[in-house]
Amino acid sequence: MWLYEKKLQYPVKVSKCDPRMAKLLLEQYGGADGELAAALRYLNQRYSIPDKVIGLLTDIGTEEFAHLEMIATMVYKLTKDATVEMMKEAGLSEMYAQHDRAVFYSNSSGVPFTTAYIQAKGDPLADLYEDIAAEEKARATYQWLIDLTDDVDLQDSLKFLREREIIHSLRFREAVEIIKADWNTKRVF
């Protein structure tokens, strides 16, 4: 069960009318290494992983949904007042044809989200290493997105999200150490 706080994890301010950036940000919304993939991946892996790391997956998976909300807010703000002409210029004609200005789970090339992006191997090391790789790929994506905009307010929110990926990667690597520990060894003092 979840409790919902009706506010964003970190403020999202967009100061430049730039629907083109909305298209690029979709990579982190419905892309292979995006926040939706991350949230679904972690929350689903919880069931078959040793119980010492279930809580971590719950916490990070939940935070990814908070990030998803921030990305959605960015995309929405960047497109809600765009004219059809602006949408066309931004390369969003296909998106407009399907969804008007609705936010939808696709990547920056318009490919709809698929669960083929995520895995649940059932082996704790395999699953956690996928999570670490996903965090690093998301961090890199945020870097390229920061490069792609000159809107300092948008950059500010993206920098926060990038930093969270760094922290999550460390937490998953700590989980690997917990998984590696030999609890079986009975130590007699």
């Binding site: 040793p50 119980d51 010492k52 998984i179 590696k180 030999d182 609890w183 079986n184």
Partner: peptide, 11 residues
């Protein structure tokens, strides 16, 4: 095998 880890899931 000392590479095998054991855990006891909640029942």
């Amino acid at each position: 095998n000392d590479q095998v880890r054991v855990w006891y899931p909640f029942i």
